[in-house]
Simulated assay, not measured.
Amino acid sequence: MAKTKGSLALASYDDIFHISDTVTEANAERVVEMPLGKLYPPEFHPFQVRNDEAMKKTAESVKKYGVLVPGLARPRADGNYELVAGNRRKLASELAGKETMPVIVREMDDDEAVIFMVDTNLEQRESLLPSEKAWAYRMKLEALKHRGIVVDGIDIGTLSVTVVSKQSGESKSQIYRLIRLTELVPGLIDLVDAKKIALNPAVELSYLSRKEQSSLMDAMAKYEATPSLPQAQRLKKHSQSGELTLEMIDSILAEEKKESVKVTLTGSRLKQYFPQDYTPKQMEKVIVGLLESWHKRQAVS
């Protein structure tokens, strides 16, 4: 893949695990007090920098004590710097009214920058969104692939997954599944982050084309429903066979709405209509009989 200084362009999911022979060298570094206006986030940064309560506390600490741990930046061609690590510290510094922050300036190629950015964020963040993990793993595997070689005839992609698995504590299959989330359109992956779509059905939906996913989003809004795992599997199957139509998506999503209609009657509420010695089985028999009579009257009317 052609590489441009400062660019974190991504390979496709299928290309991540193929061999490349990019080689890099580490260079000297220095620590400087850098103006915040000269620091820019990476072109693609998978980790959200949230201005939440935790950030407010960090800003208060920075205002009182300053930034205790320097960020890491690499020079850009325009004379500014790409902040590889320390974007939360930068926002905290801005909120604290600071004009500069300490950073280590290091010459790094794209792959070194990606690996460092991913590793520092995975280590330091207690709770990451599924989308953050997904993009982080994808970017790291791609970077490792670029720097890799064949070892004893084994594809570097396979070796890279083993490395990331050991470092993250997640199984290789879980890493593959998370990376699949990067194939979702933004609206769907946002629903995964919001815990409105579970991981398993989300992975199945990632095999739909982007056009099909957009149509699915429209159907989800129409029926106020999200696909269950069996429904997602059916959508994937029809998509891969080339048979998935708008009508089929609508039909499958409409099922969820029907299945989600539930009426719960508690025992305490029902008992007021029955003799005290009636068992649940006897109450059920009476209720079913009344419903059957009502249904017959509805069919006639």
Results as ranks from 00 to 15, higher is better:
A2Y: 02
K3H: 08
K3D: 04
S7E: 11
L8F: 12
D14N: 09
D15T: 11
F17Y: 07
H18P: 00
D21W: 00
V23A: 12
A26K: 15
E29A: 09
V32F: 01
P35M: 07
G37W: 00
K38F: 09
L39H: 09
R50K: 13
D52H: 02
A54R: 15
K56I: 10
S61N: 11
S61A: 13
V62L: 04
K63I: 00
K64E: 14
L72T: 08
R74I: 04
R74K: 13
Y81A: 11
E82N: 08
N87I: 00
R89Y: 00
A92I: 03
S93E: 08
S93Q: 07
A96K: 03
E99F: 00
M101I: 10
I104S: 04
V105Y: 01
E107D: 15
D110M: 06
D111N: 14
E112W: 00
V114S: 03
F116L: 13
M117L: 15
V118Q: 09
V118P: 02
D119K: 15
T120K: 15
E123T: 10
E123G: 09
R125G: 02
E126L: 12
S127N: 12
L128I: 08
L128M: 11
A136S: 14
Y137P: 10
R138C: 00
M139K: 06
M139C: 04
L141W: 02
L144T: 03
R147M: 07
V151Y: 09
G153I: 06
G153K: 07
G157Q: 07
T162E: 14
K166F: 02
Q167P: 02
G169R: 10
E170S: 10
S173P: 01
S173M: 06
Q174M: 13
I175G: 03
L178R: 13
I179M: 15
R180T: 03
L188S: 11
I189M: 06
D190P: 01
V192W: 08
D193Y: 03
K196S: 03
A198F: 05
L199I: 14
P201S: 13
S206P: 03
Y207D: 04
E212H: 03
S214V: 12
A219L: 08
A221S: 12
A221V: 15
Y223D: 08
Y223H: 15
P230N: 10
Q233L: 07
R234C: 01
H238Y: 11
S239I: 05
G242Q: 04
E247H: 05
I249N: 07
D250Q: 11
S251E: 06
L253Q: 08
L253K: 06
S260M: 08
S260R: 15
V261N: 09
K262L: 11
K262V: 12
K262T: 13
V263N: 07
T266Q: 13
T266M: 04
G267L: 05
G267F: 01
K271L: 05
K271Q: 13
Y273I: 05
P280A: 02
K281D: 12
K281T: 10
E284H: 06
E284S: 10
L290R: 10
H295C: 11
A299G: 01
V300Q: 14
S301M: 12
S301D: 08
